[in-house]
């Protein structure tokens, strides 16, 4: 049973809207990139089969809206994540400043059992823009932040040019694997679900 569970790794991508979350995922999964901006609504995932140290895994990569008005149902999908990827745009200061917010929001909502050691990976995206001339967040600054949060691995990427995307996701996979599975263990005899209670609850429904 444990082995089946380990075949699936759940990754959540968070960050402000427009930083390139969807593009990174598309580049990694489909090797495609589009300059067009299409906002994401709600949350959904793409899967990708990956091989790591001779074993096969399915990465389930969740892309999110990053805008509250397109996240109306909340973030129940954070549950059971094995790794959380925080993305910012190296050309937009605010998106970097918000990393903290995204990280904290994740830790609160997903409430992993060992928040100190929960694996995050930070991506500074769009390094290609204007030949790097318009960047406002230096690598040093980003790395300093990552170091201060328990040595989060950091990658500079370009979803547009596919730069470092593969390497970043390899690291994401590796870190997701390190995360201890957190399935609430179910023991049939420990939970008393009396037949009466069950019956009562299923009356409301005709379908």
């Amino acid at each position: 049973m444990a082995s089946r569970r380990r075949m699936l790794l759940k990754v959540i991508i968070l960050g402000d809207s427009g930083v390139g979350k969807t593009s990174l995922m598309n580049q990694y999964v489909n090797r495609k990139f589009s300059n067009q901006y299409k906002a994401t609504i709600g949350a959904d995932f793409l899967t990708k089969e990956v091989q790591y140290e001779d074993r096969l895994f399915t990465l389930q990569i969740w892309d999110t809206a990053g805008q509250e008005r397109f996240q109306s149902l909340g973030v129940a999908f954070y549950r059971g994540a094995d790794c959380c990827v925080l993305v910012y745009d190296v050309n937009v200061m605010k998106s970097f400043e918000n990393l903290n917010h995204w990280r904290e929001e994740f830790l609160i909502q997903a409430s992993p059992s060992d928040p100190e050691n929960f694996p995050f990976v930070v991506l500074g995206n769009k390094v290609d823009v204007d030949g790097g001339n318009s960047r406002v967040v230096s690598e040093k600054k980003a790395k300093a932040w990552c170091a201060s949060k328990g040595n989060i691995p950091y990658f500079e990427t370009s979803a547009k040019e596919g730069f470092n995307v593969e390497a970043a996701f390899e690291c994401i996979t590796k870190n997701a694997l390190k995360n201890e599975p957190e399935e609430e263990l179910y023991m049939p005899e420990t939970i008393d679900v009396g037949g009466g209670g069950r019956q009562q609850r299923s009356t409301g429904c005709e379908c």
Binding site: T58, L73, G74, A76, R79
Partner: peptide, 30 residues
């Protein structure tokens, strides 16, 4: 999946339940 037949949850809570079922269904799919 019968648990999803409930009418007693607000969409938010229903979504939580749905996500759990969803995760299980991935295993079934495999």
């Amino acid at each position: 999946l019968s648990e999803l037949r409930t009418s007693k949850l607000s969409p938010h809570k229903y979504y939580e339940l749905y996500m759990r079922a969803f995760d299980q269904l991935r295993k079934l799919e495999m």
